[in-house]
Amino acid sequence: MIAWIIAGMNILLIIIAIVAIVLLLTGGFLAAAHWLLWVGIVLALFAIIVWIVRAIGGRNRV
């Protein structure tokens, strides 16, 4: 009977460990994606500002 309880505890511990690892990886990927989203927004704004400055300046292309 005690062996069954110990085996059940081991399985429960393994399941908890797997869930913890999955949540850790998911949280890390989401944090990285969130950071890259902000980097993309900043780069897009920079590109728009440069395009507007070039359009207003009337720079001639050679």
Results as ranks from 00 to 15, higher is better:
53 V>W: 07
22 V>E: 02
46 F>L: 13
54 R>M: 13
10 N>D: 06
31 A>C: 07
44 A>C: 10
3 A>R: 13
29 F>Q: 03
55 A>F: 05
8 G>L: 13
25 L>Y: 04
5 I>D: 09
42 V>T: 15
26 T>E: 07
51 W>R: 06
42 V>A: 15
60 N>F: 05
42 V>N: 11
19 V>I: 04
39 V>R: 07
28 G>L: 15
37 L>C: 06
30 L>M: 13
4 W>P: 00
23 L>Q: 07
12 L>M: 06
53 V>Y: 08
40 G>Q: 01
62 V>N: 14
58 G>Q: 08
39 V>G: 02
36 L>A: 08
42 V>D: 12
20 A>T: 04
13 L>G: 06
62 V>L: 09
30 L>G: 01
59 R>A: 13
22 V>A: 14
25 L>W: 06
48 I>W: 00
32 A>N: 05
55 A>S: 10
58 G>Y: 01
16 I>V: 08
55 A>V: 08
56 I>A: 14
6 I>G: 02
35 W>L: 07
22 V>C: 10
57 G>C: 03
29 F>L: 15
35 W>N: 05
49 I>P: 02
27 G>H: 01
54 R>P: 01
30 L>H: 03
7 A>K: 12
17 A>P: 01
11 I>S: 07
12 L>I: 08
48 I>F: 03
20 A>Q: 01
34 H>V: 01
20 A>W: 05
60 N>P: 06
26 T>F: 09
30 L>Q: 06
7 A>T: 04
24 L>Q: 00
51 W>Q: 10
28 G>R: 09
9 M>I: 15
41 I>T: 10
